[in-house]
């Protein structure tokens, strides 16, 4: 925050999500790095969706579906839980949720950082395309399904079919993995990966608290990249 940071408060008990988003969309790139404090979100949907300015939005409570959807540049902090598809298709910026998040967190996101304080539900990072997701708790089944690029770092456990049909995304899990999906395999942790993992710890503000050596790396066996009859049962 620079010296010109202005603070605004917005109460969703008395104003609508539409009014909030319209005000946030009116901010122009780089002109006013402001802080917006949003009260009473009550699980409402599409809070702070479609932002494109280096603004910080702090939401005090649980949000519904698609909070921070398609985010660019903005930092969105949720002091509570988040519903389906938090930070879906994010391009850049940062979305941070203190509590648990529902399914499809960070779905198809191209960039930026998604930091989840609690657990993530099913399909976390589905079809992710470059985002860095850090989940301090565990992730549900079918996480990183068809994940194309980016990293998913899980401090806890992963549910069934982790990384099914994965492309080039990299998955780091500290705890147990219930099962790996088709074409997803454990891979060697080399120095470059420990370095990458350390960078993710920094992103989540926990560097020094965790040891990269406690994590295992998972990625694509690349056997589904070209159809072969002997792999047909994996489709």
């Amino acid at each position: 925050m620079n010296a010109s940071t202005k603070s605004h408060s917005f109460d969703l008990a008395t104003a609508s999500v539409r009014e909030l988003n319209a005000a946030l969309h009116a901010l122009k790139d780089g002109t006013n790095a402001s802080l917006w404090q949003v009260a009473n979100p009550r699980g409402l949907h599409a809070i702070a969706a479609g932002l494109d300015a280096p603004v910080t939005v702090e939401v005090d409570g649980p949000v519904g579906y698609y909070c921070g959807g398609m985010n660019k540049q903005a930092t969105i902090i949720v002091r509570g839980a988040a519903g389906v598809g938090v930070a879906e298709n994010m391009m850049s910026g940062r979305v941070e949720v203190a509590g648990d998040v529902s399914q499809a967190a960070g779905a198809t996101a191209h960039g930026g950082a998604l930091i989840i304080g609690g657990d993530a539900g099913a399909r976390c990072g589905i079809s992710m395309k470059g985002v860095d997701i850090v989940v301090k708790g565990s992730v549900g089944h079918m996480s990183a399904f068809m994940a194309q690029a980016g990293t998913l770092t899980v401090f806890g456990d992963a549910g069934e079919a982790l990384g099914d049909s994965i492309y080039e995304a990299r998955l780091y899990v500290r705890g147990g993995v219930k099962s790996l999906g088709a074409d997803c395999v454990e891979k060697e942790m080399r120095d470059e990966h420990r370095q990458e993992l350390y960078e993710r710890f920094k992103l989540a503000g926990v560097e020094g608290e965790l040891d990269p050596s406690d994590f295992k790396r998972y990625g694509s066996a690349r056997t589904l990249y070209h159809f072969h009859v002997d792999n047909a049962s994996a489709y």
């Binding site: 009550r42 699980g43 409402l44 649980p62 519904g64 839980a81 519903g83």
Partner: peptide
Amino acid sequence: SEYRALAGLPGIE
């Protein structure tokens, strides 16, 4: 079905 439905319950926070 969604958290919204629970948001008005006492002590939900």
